[in-house]
Design a protein around this nucleic acid. Structure first.
Lengths: 122, 122
DNA sequence: CAGGATCCTTTACGATACTG
DNA sequence: CAGTATCGTAAAGGATCCTG
């Protein structure tokens, strides 16, 4: 009882900080947000699709980042039964819960660009 | 007219990707989210306050990250007229627009922790 | 096609010491 | 107090080549 009552700002802040740390460590690196952002749009994409859509990424990084995301059950990987084998990547249900985060991030970026270059042009 | 009509998924996606890139490059590094998260809570914090609140950061990094944030007009720095000089950091009005982003991030992190350790404990 | 292995460069970060 | 300077390490990322 007493214990519950003395929750202070510091404690609250600690939880928040911990939460931010967790999220950032899962989404760390240069590419995770891009990959997730891409998968939110078109669900079910092949390795090559992602390689094309995620601007500038190479096979090594793409492969590695996808494995990270898979380990955290954000992305699912399905090997298709095609001639030269094909793989389909998509968000898991759990991965979908990241949509609000990604969307806020993207939304802010759009506004940022407006504030820098003005509303006139890209 | 015609031109406007042919907006396709790729174009939309490009804008989104660009937006995500922008946001991430501004908030890059290990500490920016933490610093901003802290400033959202308690506005007006001194250098030492931040050094204490942002768990694990050192003076060099804190100084550097704050300069980055200041350059992007997300944080304002005010030198106070005290005996040993003091500096107050706070979010700018523009910096406040990041609150939804940070909050979504923190919220997701909290849920993540629950999903891993269960609802029982921290 | 999907990715692993290798090598190499860059830069991010941390610890420590020092200054107005 | 609020930083800067210097040095050193570790990790992240990129290019290229190779394979089932």
């Amino acid at each position: 009882m007493k214990k519950k009552a003395v929750v202070n700002d510091t404690a609250v802040c600690q939880v928040r900080m911990q939460a931010i740390s967790d999220t950032m460590s899962i989404l760390s690196g240069k590419w995770k947000f891009h990959i997730l952002g891409t998968l939110i749009e078109g669900n079910k994409l092949g390795f090559m699709d992602l390689l094309r859509e995620v601007n500038g990424i190479g096979t090594k990084m793409l492969s590695k980042e996808l494995q990270d995301l898979e380990m955290n059950r954000l992305v699912s990987r399905t090997v298709m039964n095609t001639k030269p084998i094909t793989v389909e990547y998509s968000l898991t249900e759990y991965g979908e819960t990241l949509s609000p985060v990604i969307n806020e991030l993207a939304k802010w970026g759009v506004e940022y660009r407006k504030s820098v270059y003005g509303d006139t042009q890209v």
